[in-house]
Design a protein around this nucleic acid. Structure first.
Lengths: 230, 230
DNA sequence: TTTCTAATCAATGAAGTATTTGAGTAACTC
DNA sequence: GAGTTACTCAAATACTTCATTGATTAGAAA
């Protein structure tokens, strides 16, 4: 065994590994695909639903999904005429979270957006998992899920009401002004809950917000319910 | 305040955030840049050293470093005529690790390479952090660092000998055949230590390997020494 | 000052990506 | 079997990325 040969072989091997790592990153290297992954982290769903939620054409959505599938970030199965896509594992969501974290600690642009949209988020307004659990147990607050109904139906925090941002104005009458409200949405960087808070506040409600979103709650093995609102 | 307006603003905001997350992923989406980051995770170093280690031209290396810097994954400072690059934070290495993990659990290509190169890695051959600490304390093993000298000088496991792969054949005479040997390199997917093991085994040594590499050891706050070998 | 070293910049062509349009296919309904 | 739904595939186009070439800059040394 000649030394040089081994060295070459293993240099190629190392490069092949770097290529595979980069392959995953390439699949993540597009804003639309990031959005698709975050949508799939809420619940598995068909192409049409993803296309609508991400505001893209079916063909474009489909081709992005192919890219994600080739990188093994998503998997799919057929259900009648529909094809249901899902994240291929929990580690995909973890990697996404790690990307988000990098962006929010290092990129000035992200910090700027965060202070702008989440400006109202001082300590006293963010609710931790533990605190929300307490509130649920003591029935001390109304918890509202401001994501689209479809996502609420797939999974929501136990006891939460569905109050999608699109229809929140019509549902305000059902809310008790004397009770504290806790809103939540898709995750720590989702703009739905902050926007809902603004609307509710302008109507005189006292509202706080969960520190992250449903996927994090689910991953922490905290109580989740399925199905539509009674 | 009209509802539609707010919705639009915040849709744009959300898209802007996805763009920033994708910006980080784009910077990671190239095998050479992954390699540069792994090299920088060993130790900060100048462009020429990176170019040599990654087997690229200075110009190409420099331009990849610009891409990494624009995504704030690396930072740099001048030292005389040289410009020293470094990772911009610990979370960069963590994100890389998360990418590697994704690739090794989901990509068949990676699994294949891993079983091929790391085939000799059954349980009994991998040494954990705890076990290596024991071995160091009891002086029960010779620990060898098979990375290039430059990286050994920057930081190495306390008590380890520098035995770079390139010169390992000449250094074999210094090794005690009756003592156990533990090799380590840049990380869990670095091919240096597995290759060193093969060479040592073919010469009749009993050798095992650390489960990961120096960066992980350092991050775990385990004992590290600096400087050249006495 | 001139000269050297280390690194960046600017321009090019080749290769790869994203989106649209239009055609094609699998499964279900009637 | 005809028609519909939900999706994928193929070709065309505009755009981006990569490596290479040669030129340029900042700082150190002579």
């Amino acid at each position: 065994m000649i030394f040089g040969e081994v060295d070459n072989t293993d240099t190629y091997t190392q490069v092949a590994l770097y290529e595979q790592f980069a392959r995953i990153a390439k699949a993540l290297a597009n804003p639309h695909r990031i959005e698709l992954l975050e949508l799939l982290d809420q619940t598995p769903r068909e192409v049409e639903s993803l296309a609508r939620a991400a505001n893209m054409s079916m063909t474009t959505t489909s081709s992005h999904l192919q890219v994600l599938r080739q990188a093994r970030l998503v998997a799919s199965h057929r259900q009648g005429t529909k094809i249901i896509y899902r994240l291929s594992g929990e580690d995909v969501a973890k990697c996404l979270a790690s990307l988000r974290q990098l962006a929010s600690t290092h990129l000035a642009e992200v910090k700027e957006i965060l202070t702008e949209v989440f400006n109202s988020d001082d300590r006293t307004i963010l609710v931790s998992h533990d605190e929300l659990l307490q509130l649920i147990e003591n029935d001390d607050a109304v918890i509202i899920d401001v994501r689209p109904v479809e996502e609420y139906v797939a999974a929501h925090i136990k006891g939460a009401l569905s109050m999608p941002l699109e229809t929140i104005n019509e549902q305000l009458v059902n809310l008790d002004k004397d009770k504290e409200i806790v809103a939540y949405c898709r995750g720590p960087h989702c703009v739905l809950a902050p926007q809902a808070m603004e609307i509710l506040r302008s109507h005189g409600f006292h509202v706080r917000r969960l520190i992250d979103g449903l996927p994090e709650w689910r991953m922490a093995n905290l109580p989740v319910s399925l199905g539509a609102q009674p």
